[in-house]
Nucleic acid binder design. Structure first.
Lengths: 223, 223
DNA sequence: TTGACTTAATCAATCGTTTAAATAATGATT
DNA sequence: AATCATTATTTAAACGATTGATTAAGTCAA
């Protein structure tokens, strides 16, 4: 985003400028209120270039979700892949699997609380309410694989099927425990008297969710 | 909407028709995509009546949130008051307090997931991405009692202070477990195959969160 | 008859997209 | 190296469609 040599051709530079401007504009104004003229002006680029490079405003919107889907996948993908191979081996101890789960949760908390996630979350949450083709992109590229690993992991730890509603509900409630600190960020700051949510605060959040998950998965409570 | 005598004058009838149509249209399409013509057509009235009765499209939008805010306020009051007196007695057993907590959580889950809340939630979640000052006040007024009673109950059950960060974090994670089903509505739909969240689905959600909370508050895990 | 309400028509503004011409980079040929 | 053809990219201007709002005339109940 800063290295002028990283984007070789002219076209690549304007594509990147439009993409970054689109993330900011779409997240701040929503799809319809972010007009082609505002998008082009924010990118410092001629309006017709949206059609030239992305086929139109809609194409730029979808490209935004391809971008953030790839970025989020890169943030959680490695940890999920590690756990995946751990499970495929079939010889992992319960403790190893639990640790793998907590690592994924840690990464998720870190991602949700990161500053750049603020605008991403607005875009995705809007799509969650009224999903379009853009949601499919994020779902297939990021959400579906991650949730899949999460369910497999929980199913193994609870000796249940990854497809069972109980497991999937549990996966969502775990997701919710991390998500709430992004969605209700202001409520969190007010309630805890935090001026900002950084390393120290994130550590406290992780610790709390760790304890919750350990309790939820304690053997004596597996119904 | 059903009783023709409830709304006396002609004007009151069109105001109500526009309000109900606006809730549906704004939640389904968003503010900008729900055009004045669509709103009027959905209400079965002339377009100019939006301006006549509400001053304009923006005024109708504000009226929708005033309507929702009024309907939501005080919906959790009775249950919260009952638990409050239970705690004030000081002689409640641990089991009674736990039951009280689960009742509160049930009410909160029921409120978040109730079918009529479905369209409200879309409006609220969308608006919360870029909250106006007026909306923020309504939202805080709605959330703070829930968080407050939740913290007091958790503090008693964990023999801790309601002001302690651990208790408040735990309250937020519990809130997140209920919120996730509305915030990540499409993820829920795809993962569980739920097209609608109604009595059966709400019962499953409550059961899952109950189990989680019981595990989180099990004595042997209280650190 | 008076005032509340409704209607159809029209307003300027803005929307996303398209066009044709201008400019810039690229590679081959001389 | 210099020139040219070719492609890639950018530009300003315009397109028809739709937006929210307004108007003046009309209808209704009291």
């Amino acid at each position: 985003m800063d290295d002028p040599e990283a984007t070789s051709s002219r076209g690549e530079a304007t594509r990147e400028a439009l993409l970054q401007a689109a993330i900011a504009q779409f997240s701040e104004l929503g799809y319809h209120a972010a007009s082609s003229r505002k998008l082009a002006a924010a990118a410092g680029v001629n309006q017709a270039l949206i059609g030239y490079h992305f086929g139109g405003k809609r194409g730029l919107y979808v490209a935004v979700f391809e971008h953030i889907g790839a970025a989020m996948s890169g943030s959680l993908g490695p940890a999920a892949a590690a756990v995946q191979t751990l499970m495929d081996d079939g010889e992992a101890t319960r403790q190893e699997l639990l640790d793998g789960l907590l690592v994924i949760v840690d990464r998720a908390v870190g991602m949700f609380t990161s500053p750049r996630m603020a605008s991403w979350a607005k875009l995705i949450v809007r799509e969650q309410q009224n999903p379009s083709e853009a949601f499919d992109v994020v779902w297939q590229r990021f959400m579906s694989p991650i949730v899949g690993v999460l369910c497999r992991l929980l199913a193994t730890l609870r000796r249940d099927s990854p497809e069972s509603p109980q497991i999937r509900l549990m996966a969502l409630t775990i997701l919710g425990q991390a998500l709430v600190f992004r969605i209700a960020r202001e409520t969190t700051r007010r309630l805890l008297g935090w001026d900002e949510i950084e390393v120290e605060e994130i550590a406290a959040i992780k610790l709390c969710i760790h304890q919750n998950i350990r309790a939820m998965l304690a053997e004596e409570h597996a119904s």
